[in-house]
Design a protein around this nucleic acid. Sequence first.
DNA 1: CAGTGGTCTAGACCACGGG
DNA 2: CCGTGGTCTAGACCACTGG
Lengths: 242, 242
Amino acid sequence: MAAEPTYLELADGLAASLGNAGERVVSENELAERHGVSRPTARAALQELERRFLVRRIRGAGTFVSRRIDYVISHDTAPSASATLRLAGAEPDVELMSARTMGAAADVALHLDIERATPVVHLQRRIRIDGIVTSWTSAYLLACAVPGIASQMRCHTSLFQVLREQYGIESQRRWSRASLELPTDTVIQTLELEGRPPTWLVEGVNHDRADRRRAIEFTRSWMRADVVNVVFEMGHPPEVVR
Amino acid sequence: MAAEPTYLELADGLAASLGNAGERVVSENELAERHGVSRPTARAALQELERRFLVRRIRGAGTFVSRRIDYVISHDTAPSASATLRLAGAEPDVELMSARTMGAAADVALHLDIERATPVVHLQRRIRIDGIVTSWTSAYLLACAVPGIASQMRCHTSLFQVLREQYGIESQRRWSRASLELPTDTVIQTLELEGRPPTWLVEGVNHDRADRRRAIEFTRSWMRADVVNVVFEMGHPPEVVR
DNA sequence: CAGTGGTCTAGACCACGGG
DNA sequence: CCGTGGTCTAGACCACTGG
């Protein structure tokens, strides 16, 4: 016999009977009572489900089925966070945190292949999904290529769309990198994280489809791993069966 | 005041004073005694470090500082697990689990762009790092391109190397995909996982550099997220400062 | 064998959310 | 206000590792 621990038995049982996203899951007390175990054991089962990204727990409210969103990064998908999230069926809520022009720092200059201190526009945005802060993005754009973009961003949400419609720039991925990292204190504050859970770090450089030699934009995003599953795809996928 | 929970204070304190990989960390009892807290609280602190992939805990032995290996997937890195791991400073220990010829199933046929039931060689391998089963890979190779490879693999460890040295095939990534998924029961058994922790799923199709039209190999790997950090890179990285 | 981490109990108080 | 999950205590037994 496997003789699995009680809390894992409970977790597996619950996992198999989870409802649709957003639905409520039994409380710790109810689970404990129903199965004749102590509250810590029932609690361990629910925490196990949270570690598996299957539920979200909110103090004072309860435990709820969560949906984890596939955030697909590939050559074929547009370099637009809101579009990528919408593609996965989510309703992203974009908040512009700051927009200002500054001289490029060393890392930004390196990625954009420009001299240090070249003017760049720094946009900071946060995206909420179902009220949860899901991503925090710093975008650095070549200032000379996007004059007045700061004011544009104040009345639009999608940077990708503004670039296309206001500046005629068809943004396209030149380079991109994703990994699961330990968040810094700033990230923890901005994403309103508890503890210090491994978090996606996604960086990328984009250029205009019409002028591939010049990099236009460098972005650095942190994304909650419990809300989003980053799926990274490289090269051309096999033909899907039709 | 932040009024952080005791166990997080303890975790942060320990995290800041961790030694080199492999070194021992204080035991639960010692931590509890030293800080005048209960064992469950001390335990929670150590478990928090485990969730951050900073330590590994072994029943009966203790808690040890772990190093997490960057597994870099990019166009520039060779499609070889052992080479990728060695590049990161690890010493992979490859075990050939099975090698047999079979007819291609639907998914394999799709990825290799061949008819179903076309003969393919199925290689199953496991890689251990520091004694821990880190990855489990199923590789499907076009049988006609690699005659007798099963016996070759019994005396060599690197498939990439065998393809190059025995068959003159310079394996190169055509398509690749990585994400963090919930492991199936089979994966849990094979990787000797406890619980059902999110695990890397990496799939890829490779071809010969000399004949890019024909796919040679389809691989599907599961890798422990606590041992390996998959870093996925697409396109050409910016020039490194020299 | 002693010490480790893994599991479990039966309580307690708290901060928070919603009715 | 009550119920929720978050934290914490003080015990207990077990399986396992190592000397």
